[in-house]
Nucleic acid binder design. Structure first.
Lengths: 329, 329
DNA sequence: TTGTAGGCGTTATCAA
DNA sequence: TTGATAACGCCTACAA
């Protein structure tokens, strides 16, 4: 029913080991018989069993990706970069989405598949997890994770760099009092704290911060944002996500506060919709697809035995229609 | 290095076959020794090898999902539904994204993993592909696909039903001339053609149709939409995606055509951003997560031997701020 | 260049 | 209840 190399061997009148060699091009096989074998393989629709191969080689041709349970196209685009490159290298992608703690529960599953590498987004993990994988010698790559051990492999988009770009842009436009609209999980980050101290100092800017949601929920922002938050002299808002910027812009417009005339607004991520808002959103663009490809390349290197890797990617500012030179006082 | 049931067997002083039985709870094993075996397994961190298991059982605990290469949160949400349920049932998800023709190229890969079921979105496939999988007795479920063989398993959101909802809503509001803004790949669909014939007849409505992009590219729509398209008496626009509705709304507003006062607008999908636009978008909501769960349930049934299945899901109208009763002529 | 022997980790069968 | 034997499909020596 399922065809194996033995079927091919019988057909070709050789031993199945010869078939194995011929099909993979390893070892030495007579050119003619090799051709014959390959032809037969094609004709009967032979497909190698990765499971069987994995048993002897311990190569499953599988990598696992853990993504947060978030319905954002952001991750989907990164996924594209990873998947495309993985496929080119004959790897397939096992996708896992996690709630808060489910990652560790899935640990066993993932080990049982003998994946060759693991990609984890956004620091949902524990040290015990890390050590357990290390014991199995399976490389892990952390993406956009904070507070991870310094010896862990990681690749990240430098969010603080991007935010600085946003503040610098506003400073140049003359803004002196800015609201920093955050998502819950960012509020505790050390680097964000440093940034909050640095901005006023470096740009002579007054900075008000407020948490509007957990994990980029536009709905929460829409509910929590209050125009009073910007009625004390704030002339611009920097958001850590376009998902935060969008509802804020809508709220402002509802209250007849014009963007960017009365209030400048900067988002983060450059999601698909951002360029088509009215006005189009000034934001910090992340090279999503490129990031995906870098992620795979890095993991691939790790799987080939390269040692500890760490990489930063720098986002860039896209000036569109929601920021404007401050004119009146 | 990697621990196996034989390691456990040695430790417990029994044969490895007994360990196998004890761990899976099949066959009869002395309760005490079973407990002992399980404890040892836990202690030494035993993880079963799915590859090895798959060799004898032919169950890989794997399903494959083919998704179009589209950076929309729409698919990501459906994925969530599928993945969550799959994991509950101890299945893992192999994710593949395809360009136009790559599906067939990946066929071999997917067969080599001995996946137990396949989910394919949006009719990117061929008949030969279908028959090849049938030969391997691997069930395939088509999602939102059109023009597929009638004996194929499928689940779909009834887009035409949803669109009818949109037109009916506009008809009720008094609109008599509507622009139907399409994406390229829909233009050729039989059911869409039928719909275009039916709407004028059933609602006494004049219907203009225009293709603005291929595959929901907001960018193309933004470039291609021209206010002249609605200057011949059109009072409302129905779009086949929120990604189409968004740039149209922005274009209209740029030209001081107020939504909904001067022009009503209906989207499709209810993406995350849609509720937070200004004004919030009236649209057709698809039960994305629920669809994902239904998809897995259906595939799971198929994998257990259920016969040909077909299912329709009905979307619903969400009236928000972009549609309005037609007042003046 | 070819084939023999052994093993990868697990499950299934059946005799003890 | 237990364990010996065989098999799953393939790969890696190594010997012919």
């Amino acid at each position: 029913m399922k065809t194996t190399i033995k079927d091919i061997a019988r057909e070709a009148g050789v031993s199945y080991q010869t078939v194995s060699k011929a099909l993979r091009g390893t070892g030495s096989v007579n050119e003619d018989t090799a051709q014959k074998i390959k032809k037969i393989a094609r004709d009967i629709g032979y497909v190698p069993s990765i499971a069987a191969r994995a048993m002897t080689t311990r190569k499953s041709q599988l990598i696992a990706i853990f993504l947060p349970q978030i319905a954002s196209s952001f991750y989907h685009t990164i996924l594209q970069g990873i998947e495309n490159l993985a496929n080119e290298h004959n790897y397939s992608v096992l996708l896992y989405l996690f709630h808060n703690t489910s990652l560790e529960n899935k640990l066993e599953t993932i080990l049982s598949y003998q994946v060759e590498g693991i990609i984890i987004f956004e620091n949902h993990f524990s040290i015990t997890l890390l050590s357990r994988f290390q014991a199995h010698k399976i490389p892990i790559l952390f993406v956009n994770s904070t507070d991870i051990p310094s010896n862990a492999n990681q690749i990240a988009i430098d969010a603080c760099y991007g935010l600085k770009l946003a503040f610098a842009h506003l400073a140049e436009l003359g803004h002196r009092h800015v609201l920093f609209a955050l998502s819950d999980h960012e509020a505790g980050m050390k680097r964000i704290g440093e940034l909050q101290a640095m901005i006023p100092r470096d740009y002579g800017m007054k900075l008000s911060s407020k948490v509007y949601c957990d994990y980029y929920s536009s709905e929460h922002v829409f509910r929590n944002f209050d125009v009073k938050d910007v009625q004390n002299g704030v002339t611009a808002i920097v958001c850590t996500s376009d998902y935060i910027a969008l509802p804020i812009m809508t709220r402002l417009q509802e209250q007849r506060i014009c963007v960017p005339e009365d209030m400048s607004l900067v988002g983060f991520d450059d999601l698909e919709f951002s360029a088509f808002l009215n006005p189009p959103l000034t934001t910090i663009q992340q090279p999503k697809r490129e990031l995906g490809e870098k992620i795979f390349q890095m993991l691939f290197g790790l799987m080939r035995g390269e040692t500890h890797q760490s990489m930063m990617i720098f986002p860039k500012l896209i000036v569109r229609g929601t920021t404007k030179m401050l004119t009146s006082k």
